[in-house]
Amino acid sequence: MTLAFDIYGTLINTSGVFDSIKKLIGEKVEGFNQLWRTKQLEYSFRRAAMNDYVDFSVCTKQALEYACLFYKVDLEEHQKASLMEEYKVLPAFDDVKKNLERLRSEGHQLYAFSNGSKEAIKGLLINAGLVDHFDGMISVEEQQVFKPSPIVYQHVLDVTSSIKETTYLISSNPFDVLGAKAFGLQSIWVQRSKESILDPWEYQPNRIISTLSGLTFTK
């Protein structure tokens, strides 16, 4: 099987900046952190609809600015810069490394597939000690459009020389899972939080798992 893993929120924990934000703004941290991530994705959707691609880090920075405005938090520029730098070295979830090792040993092809730039993907994977577990890295920057555009899922097939029937998109992001499924790929939703809800669309993933330990394939 060819397995394309989303990075942000699936392998890498985007809440890794939680403690740093809490030190800066205190009790507003939970809502602030959630809004930052929500707006980051919303801005990528808007950019895709507008055909106005920018590096994903621009969406991240502008989303941070929005969260500051919404919560009336007056962070200094060096504090914002520090949070942005920390976003480059977010930690992996605890279940990731051992299961990537297992899947590689089972003979699957593993690819990192992200809205982030190749430079950002590589930095995150190196920091988390995961880079050697992948056969390659695929960034949407190569097509200049964000997920869930069908263009980027076709790009996965082109890069990996694989076919839809044996190519799986593994992601914790419902829009990504459903986008891949609508395109014709196989998809698996990693429900990282019990509170997460999968959109009730006509497209549904092949499977739902709570951790990567549930990512198994029959031979």
Results as ranks from 00 to 15, higher is better:
Q143I: 15
M50H: 14
L103G: 08
S161F: 11
E106I: 01
L103F: 01
Y66F: 15
K28N: 03
N206V: 10
A4K: 02
Q154D: 11
Y153H: 09
E101M: 10
S20V: 04
C68S: 02
I170G: 06
F45H: 02
S15A: 10
S172Q: 00
K181N: 06
K61Y: 13
F93H: 08
E141S: 14
I209T: 01
V96T: 08
V73R: 03
S187I: 02
L124R: 06
Q204T: 10
E30P: 04
L41N: 05
A182Y: 07
H155A: 01
R47T: 01
A67I: 02
S196L: 15
E65W: 15
E30L: 07
V177Y: 15
K39H: 07
F18V: 03
G116Y: 11
C68E: 06
L41Y: 15
G9N: 05
G107K: 06
P174K: 07
E85D: 11
T211Y: 07
K22W: 00
L75Q: 03
G107M: 05
G16N: 03
Y111W: 15
K61R: 14
R37M: 02
G129N: 11
V156L: 15
L3A: 08
S187Q: 00
F70V: 10
V54N: 11
F175P: 02
S117R: 14
W189G: 05
V177T: 09
G26P: 01
I126N: 12
